[in-house]
Amino acid sequence: MDAVDVDGIRIAFTRAGRGRPIVLLGGFVGDGAGTWHHQIDALSGSYTVVSWDPPGSGGSSDVPESFRLPDYATSLAGLISALGLEQPVLVGLSFGGALALEYWRHRGAQVRGLFLAGAYAGWTGSLPAATVAQRLQTCLAASLLPAPEFASTMVPSMFSPDVPTDLVAEVRDNIAASFRPGGFRAMARSSAEADLRDVLPLIDVPTVVLHGAADVRAPGFVADALCAAIPGSRLVILPGVGHVSCIEAPERFTAELEAFLGGLRRHAGPGPDLASPAHP
């Protein structure tokens, strides 16, 4: 894992491959490499693939608990600039989907496409107010637990009922290892406060909304609303898959992502090699 300094914040990231850039934005638990290792392995033969640990988690610096979605977007912009990534495709899972939307709000011309999985227009922008309040209360209470108990509290809602137990254990261990209470509370509050519905009708880049049909954290009505509000977007449903679809069904997830990326590539032409020395 590498790191760069962005406005005094250490941002840890994993970078692999060579070609057009893809930036992978995970949820509010687990680190980037643990969330995205299947996609990093599968895509790095054709693309420059970057995943990050959001500020306040994993190998990145702690940040104040007042950190909010625009602050995360600013840190992400600093990372993308530092790595010389031109017009990346943003792939956002859950919290990472909201972050991708917030990033697009301020830097839409710098984004090639959006692939939003289990995503929200912020909790307030996607869920009933009572659900938002209850979910935030649950998250804040869980943040006071020791890391192993915190991880055990979070994982049950992330998968379909039939997911293998060894996969659940792997994700639980990753969540525990990367957990930092203050950073998690900042991301939970960011999710609860965000309402990005005003951004959705303005999006003018190719967009896929991917929904796991067994996702209980971002249910089907959330994906339907995102797709209906984003002009020209396409809804992809993975039957029998839960919230962390990139982990539970990595082959199906990656196949859909590769199809999306292939369409962008055919439309854009060969383009520059963004992993060349001219783009460090």
Rank of each mutant, 00 (worst) to 15 (best):
S143N: 08
A177K: 07
G118Q: 08
A142P: 08
A151D: 01
A142G: 10
I175G: 00
A119K: 01
V111M: 05
T124M: 11
T124H: 14
G113M: 01
T153N: 10
F150E: 08
A142T: 09
P156R: 06
A194T: 05
S178I: 01
R180H: 09
L136T: 05
G122R: 04
F179T: 00
F115I: 09
L116P: 01
A186F: 01
A129V: 11
D173V: 12
P156I: 06
A142Y: 10
Q137N: 15
R135S: 14
A129T: 13
S152N: 13
A194S: 06
L116Y: 02
G182L: 03
P156E: 07
A133M: 12
G118T: 04
S178F: 01
M158I: 13
E149R: 11
S191H: 15
V171Q: 08
A151I: 06
R180V: 06
S157A: 12
T165H: 15
P146H: 02
E149C: 11
L136N: 04
A147M: 00
F159S: 04
V155E: 07
A151P: 04
L127H: 09
A147V: 02
P164C: 11
A121Y: 02
P156F: 01
S157E: 13
A169R: 12
L116S: 01
L167T: 10
D173M: 11
A151R: 02
